[in-house]
Amino acid sequence: MIEKNSISVAKDPRSPLKKFMGISGSGVFIALIIWIVLVCILSPIVNPAGNGFNVATNIISVLKQQTYIGIVACALTLVIITGNIDLSVGSMLTLTACVCASLVQYGFAAAVFGTILVGALLGLVNGILVSGLQLNSFITTLGTGSIYGSFAIIYCSGGSIVPPSLAAFEFLGKGSVGIIPMPVIILAVVVAIFAFVLMKTVFGQRLYVIGANPVAARYSGISARRDMALTYVFTGAAVGLAAVIMVANVMSAKPQAASGKEMEIIMAVVLGGTSIMGGKGTILGTVLGFAFIGFLANGSTALGLNQYLQWVIMGIILVAALSADIMKEKGVVLPWKKSK
């Protein structure tokens, strides 16, 4: 006779610690805290000649530095949650920056909204190729990345574009409200918007399903293709916005501006707990991700570390974090813990 179901799910038996670790991005958070503490302690010892490490002022400078990455990372989170990727964001940023610089002469609206529009269109191309034609997102965006990068160089005719002075525009990049720089404010707004969209809208919640099980999504009446294409459009728009801030900050644009940045952005998203397989991730995690990368660089400087050693450390921490994530998910039992 078949017994009553012996799997009892009455109470969640996990300890509070395990529950916390289960939250996406918790690993990075802990790593971040540990790092900051480490730097605070070590920097006066290791690098007494340096400026020391004041956490408060550093938070703001880190955020300012990471603005471009942060804005794009938020949008990219959506793309990755649906199980895709976008390797063209670096080149897109370069191209839109060049376009932006050349639009400044036409006024604030043109410079800001025109650029965002251009970015959105570039993103739309990605969206059509990936979800419309159902092409592999990795190779496709690798290809569009090369194309956009070339366009940038051609557009700038090899040199750089220096826009004319425009106070309102420049304020976006160089101004501040109180002690908080404008870019950081814009970043905060973008983070809030994407967090809201992801967690609180039908569109956002559906993205998780598309990434976790596209078949089930289809059976539930979700139009995966349209939603996927939209994530690419949003990414393009976000890139446009980031470009605006970038140009407003330095008041010039050159074609090599952001090459290679896509890897850093992807890393930020994945560090924050977003799974490259899709179906999992949060904006908060992404924020912790790019904040961590920023603090790594920042703290390393305070410790007097060679810029390149920073990369090595970042790489090692990334590998460790990714491994820990996978092992947690797959429930890998450590060999020495195996019983029997």
Partner: peptide, 12 residues
């Protein structure tokens, strides 16, 4: 395979 996204919550 077709009815549920196992990684996601009951709620969703």
């Amino acid at each position: 395979q077709e009815g549920l996204a196992l990684r996601l919550s009951i709620l969703l």
